[in-house]
Design a protein around this nucleic acid. Structure first.
Length: 591
RNA sequence: GGAGCCGUGGUGUAGCCUGGUUAACACGCCGGCCUGUCAAGCCGGAGAUCGCGGGUUCAAAUCCCGUCGGUUCCGCCA
């Protein structure tokens, strides 16, 4: 009995097992369900660990039985009783605790509950706004609670691993300076300096590089980041990164270390053995094989090249595209054989929906033949290489598209995603990692007519690309690496520039003169004047990682208190207006 | 900024296209019966002016316009 008069638990409900039979226990928990048989009353009591059945028998304790008659769902109880094996016929194999039950000797109603606005149990479909408003009830559901157990296990495995590898956990400011490039900043008015504003960090990027200049050598942090951009299923305005940076290393060091970290994380949090090393693709390979820089390698359907075949074919449309510098590519659909006309038409319709003018299909036939709307234009000179390259089995389907490289990649990537959804059942608990390396250093910003950093302005070019910088900047590659898991980008990083001269060349290419760059990134550049070590790092999206590990479709399910698509917190009621007095104090006036 | 989907008792849905009866079903909730249930069972009951505002019409959950909220995607964002 506690000072406050309630009985303290001796065991978690969900932990009881046959070996506990005969024990006197006290359980604390919430009432999942009551089954009142008039004589016997059964209560399912839930806590963090799981559910246990409590039996109220009037012959054992008339008081407890009488009390149980008034108990309702979500009441908080302290139950005192004896663990017993259930009768053979009453064992519940669906419950971890299904071999035992607790026969109550006494029960305390520690607190009562209103009837909840939705049923607190797994597998219920409830409007998300209601779940968010009553988040504490949503989080009581075991499938939600489990996500946070997983999340904590992942964080712990990361900390244990990095700590053992000699990393220091160091915090960086939440109130910092707005930086150009990248996402829109969240901004905080500075009361002591009217007209000035802090920005919340989009990531600790600059600070972690300065920690390298400071000589900490190995830094990490599990840290909140803020970006004021529109939301998605996998994007929240505040999210958590596993952020790290190392000195005196090259990309292979980071990649190898992270592969080992993920084996620990998956073993520790999921009990899953990962195979090392993770497959690697260059950015160029990813784009030409899968049309995206974050390919989902759980599925095949890599793109095949047919531009050469059609360059001199009788099919004018493709011939023209091939001769004018375009490409003809396609892929064989996995999971679809002997398609009906309707299925083929649906694929063509899908292509049109994705913005294509058309789509050519081919179906393999017995004896190396091919059935296709364009087969009358093709001779053996085309047919042979096509069927050879596609390795057709009878009934298999090849989809072909033609156009500019970018158009074809985008279309085929869309179709591949559609085919995965349509024809490939999602594999159970399969984790397909892939490193995507050697991203372009710059992208061309059509609106502003200038180069932009693909990653950020401190990303080192690949050494072999340095001579290309001024001549062919768009062909320059960076010394960078993204990690993709099941088609979701879960992290990325790079080796940074520590050479002032090289950094200035990059700024020049980005159209930043020395004064501008000093204005925008001054404190980092100044630090770099005092002996910056060679360094590099990486950051992972913890919310996304846990989402994939827990098999969820949105990071809202891995963030305890997430925001809606319009960035409001329906439980807390944020954002909200502030008082006139607060505004005045901040010297702000609303327009 | 743009496009799609959703909004009907506490919850999830049907009804809406083709306007007209007492808005239907399941779960939950309340009461009664019931000593082996665990999606308990059986009997009975309460509970919705159909997100909100406007319009069309003799008549609107249903058709039209606007708006709010949730969600997915594009733009945006590493």
């Amino acid at each position: 009995m506690t000072q406050h008069g309630w009985n303290k638990r001796t065991h978690y409900c969900g932990d009881l097992r046959a070996a506990d039979a005969g024990r006197e226990v006290v359980l604390n928990g919430w009432v999942q369900r009551r089954r009142d048989h008039g004589g016997l009353i059964f209560l399912d009591l839930r806590d963090r660990a799981g559910i246990a059945q409590v039996v109220f028998n009037p012959q054992i304790s008339p008081e407890a039985h009488a009390a149980a008659e008034d108990i309702r769902g979500e009441f908080v109880l302290a139950v005192e009783g004896t663990v017993g094996r259930r009768p053979e016929v009453a064992v519940n194999p669906n419950l971890g605790t299904g071999e035992v039950e607790v026969t109550a000797r006494s029960v305390q109603v520690v607190s009562t509950s209103k009837t909840p606005p939705f049923e607190v149990k797994d597998g219920v479909k409830v409007d998300e706004s209601l779940r968010l408003r009553y988040r504490y009830l949503d989080l009581r559901r075991p499938e939600m609670a489990g996500n946070f157990v997983m999340r904590a296990a992942v964080s712990k495995a990361v900390r244990d691993f990095l700590d053992a590898e000699g990393f220091l956990e160091i915090e960086t400011p939440m109130l910092t300076k707005s930086t150009p490039e990248g996402a829109r900043d969240f901004v905080v008015p500075a009361r002591l300096q009217p007209g000035h504003f802090f920005a919340l960090p989009q990531s600790p990027q600059l600070f972690k590089q300065i920690l390298m200049v400071a000589g900490f050598d190995r830094y990490y942090q599990i840290v909140r980041c803020f970006r004021d951009e529109d939301l998605r299923a996998d994007r929240q305005p505040e999210f958590t990164q596993i952020d790290l940076e190392m000195s005196f290393i090259e990309s292979e060091d980071i990649i190898g270390l992270m592969e080992r970290m993920f084996t620990k994380v998956f073993a520790g949090a999921l009990g899953v053995e990962l195979e090392l090393p993770f497959p690697r693709l260059t950015h160029k390979e990813a784009m030409s094989l899968y049309g995206t820089d974050r390919p989902d390698l759980r599925y095949g359907m890599a793109f095949l090249e047919f531009t050469d075949v059609f360059g001199s074919s009788g099919f004018e449309l493709f011939k023209k595209v091939a001769q004018e510098g375009g490409v003809v590519r396609g892929f064989k659909v996995q999971g679809l054989t002997n398609p009906t006309r309707k299925q083929l038409e649906a694929l063509v319709d899908k292509a049109k929906e994705l913005g294509a003018s058309g789509l050519v299909w081919m179906v393999g036939e017995e004896g190396n033949g091919l059935r296709s709307p364009i087969s009358k234009f093709l001779g053996p000179a085309e047919m042979h290489p096509i069927s050879e390259r596609a390795r057709f089995w009878p009934g298999e389907v090849l989809l072909l598209a033609a156009g500019s490289q970018a158009e074809v990649n985008e279309l085929l990537a869309g179709l591949r995603a559609h085919c995965i959804e349509e024809f490939s059942p999602e594999p159970e608990e399969c984790f397909a990692f892939a490193w995507v390396m050697d991203f372009p250093l710059f992208d061309w910003d059509e609106e502003e007519k200038r180069l932009k950093s693909n990653h950020h302005p401190f990303t080192s070019p690949d050494p072999e690309s340095i001579p290309l910088l001024e001549e062919k900047p768009l062909e320059a590659l960076s010394d960078s690496y993204d990690l993709v898991l099941n088609g979701v980008e879960i992290g990325g990083g790079s080796i940074r520039i520590h050479d002032r001269e090289l950094q200035q060349r990059i700024f020049n290419l980005l159209g930043l003169d020395p004064e501008e760059s000093r204005e925008k990134f001054g404190f980092l550049l100044e630090a770099f004047e005092y002996g910056p070590p060679p360094h590099g790092g990486i950051a992972f999206g913890l919310d996304r990682l846990v989402m994939l590990m827990a098999g969820r479709a949105t990071i809202r399910d891995t963030i305890a208190f997430p925001k809606t698509q319009t960035a409001s917190d329906l439980m807390a009621g944020a954002p909200d207006t502030i008082s006139a007095a607060q505004l005045k104090e901040l010297r702000l006036r609303l327009s």
